[in-house]
């Protein structure tokens, strides 16, 4: 069964790019434009991995992660932070990786494969 990736990203161009990239590589994707929508989708779909933008319209990424990690069914889902802001590396302390925009597609796919292996 194909692994599921939840993309939390408010920029539609980036969200579309990530969706296409992951689908072309055999993953099932879901997309959320806000932290609230992201939590709802995570609860519904139980993704295997989440990519998380830091600056979302309703919440910042760390606050989303706090909600995620408070849910016993979701807290172990690996999260990759993808953001254009500087200094993002330690923003979510338990994120498995962080990538700055613009990012290298191969680097991102490598990370995804590593954490979905």
């Amino acid at each position: 069964m194909n692994k599921k990736i939840l993309i939390i990203e408010d920029d539609p161009a980036v969200a579309d790019y990530l969706t296409t990239l992951f689908q072309d590589n055999g993953y099932v994707t879901f997309s959320a434009k806000s932290a609230h929508e992201g939590i709802e989708l995570a609860r519904k779909e139980h993704p295997d991995l989440i990519t998380l933008d830091l600056e979302l319209p309703d919440e910042w990424g760390p606050r989303f992660y706090r909600k995620l990690s408070a849910d016993k069914d979701l807290k172990n889902i690996p999260v990759i932070v993808i953001s254009g802001l500087s200094g993002i590396k330690y923003a979510v302390s338990k994120a498995v990786a962080s990538i700055s925009k613009p990012f290298d597609r191969d680097e991102l796919l490598k990370l995804v494969r590593e954490h979905l292996a």
Partner: peptide, 13 residues
């Protein structure tokens, strides 16, 4: 002091 400290947005915890 650190960029990592600046991504919370408001206080709740």
């Amino acid at each position: 002091n650190r960029p990592a400290a600046s991504f919370w947005g408001g206080f709740s915890n």
